[in-house]
């Protein structure tokens, strides 16, 4: 369970988030949506503990996040960023093994158990066949899957996503989100993801948080939140909302400011 109590955050003198109150139960799948600069990425960094709230507290299963050691946090919370760059020629398996970092002590290398977890993680993501390939030589989608496998090797209770599909083409976007959804359904991993694609969020997430100028503007199901009026208010974009032909979830269609038909 994650609880935010009156959390505010500023970068220096620039306030980014204002008095956020939030409760996320175990096993939820929550998307953070909002225009650029609304504070999505900052929220993810706060929840991962790499940034500390300027005021207010974040509780993770009853402990205050900013008082936990980085290692303790990483044993429970994993983060999939937009992308990682890797300057050295590590193999995919070596990268996935990095997910075991929070469990290794200063004086011992990985054990048999760690290799089992790594192997299972790669199999679950479907990249075990690529394990001896160099991470840098993989395609963007394969790399993002490797990172997902790495976070899986962390055996997290909470998975944070920071626009994990931002640089991927459509089939990889769907593959990554399918995998995340399975983790959520089958293993009860709590997922909180900053997303920029409203329709993917609508398809995969049960609960949406709309952020506007560092505040939670609305909180609810896709059906409740994805309306032309709300989207106009948060994103300043004119849209129509239809239904996804198969899932019946809301589907947002943009209306160009200047109609191409004219």
């Amino acid at each position: 369970m994650i609880k935010l109590k009156q959390v505010s955050f500023s970068y220096g003198d620039t306030p980014v988030l204002h008095h956020i109150d939030l409760l996320v139960q175990e096993g939820e799948m929550v998307a953070l949506l909002g225009p650029n600069g609304s504070g999505k990425t900052t929220m993810i960094k706060l929840l991962s503990g790499v940034l500390r709230p300027t005021t207010g507290d974040i509780h993770l299963d009853g402990s205050i996040l900013s008082r936990m050691k980085r290692r303790q946090v990483a044993q429970r919370v994993a983060v999939v960023p937009q992308q990682f760059s890797m300057p050295f020629a590590f193999t995919l398996r070596e990268v996935v093994l990095l997910g075991r970092t929070p469990f290794l002590s200063l004086f011992s290398d990985e054990r048999e158990q760690d290799h089992r977890v790594v192997q299972q993680a790669m199999e679950r993501i479907g990249i075990a066949a690529l394990k001896e390939r160099f991470f840098n030589e993989l395609s963007g989608g394969e790399r993002q899957k490797a990172i997902l496998a790495m976070t899986l090797a962390q055996e997290p209770k909470v998975l944070l996503l920071d626009e994990p599909t931002a640089h991927l083409d459509i089939n990889h976007q769907v593959e990554i989100l399918d995998l995340v959804k399975r983790l959520n359904r089958e293993q009860g991993v709590t997922v909180i993801g900053a997303m920029h694609d409203l329709n993917l969020a609508s398809l995969y997430f049960d609960r949406l948080l709309l952020l506007k100028e560092g505040r939670i503007f609305a909180d609810g199901t896709p059906e409740k939140l994805l309306t032309p009026e709300t989207i106009k208010e948060v994103f300043a974009a004119s849209v129509q909302v239809t239904q996804h032909p198969l899932t019946k979830s809301p589907h947002v269609v943009v209306i160009p400011k200047q109609s191409p038909l004219e």
Partner: peptide, 11 residues
């Protein structure tokens, strides 16, 4: 090697 942010995420 994953960068400072990536390393921080790994504890």
């Amino acid at each position: 090697s994953l960068g400072e942010e990536g390393a921080a995420y790994l504890g």
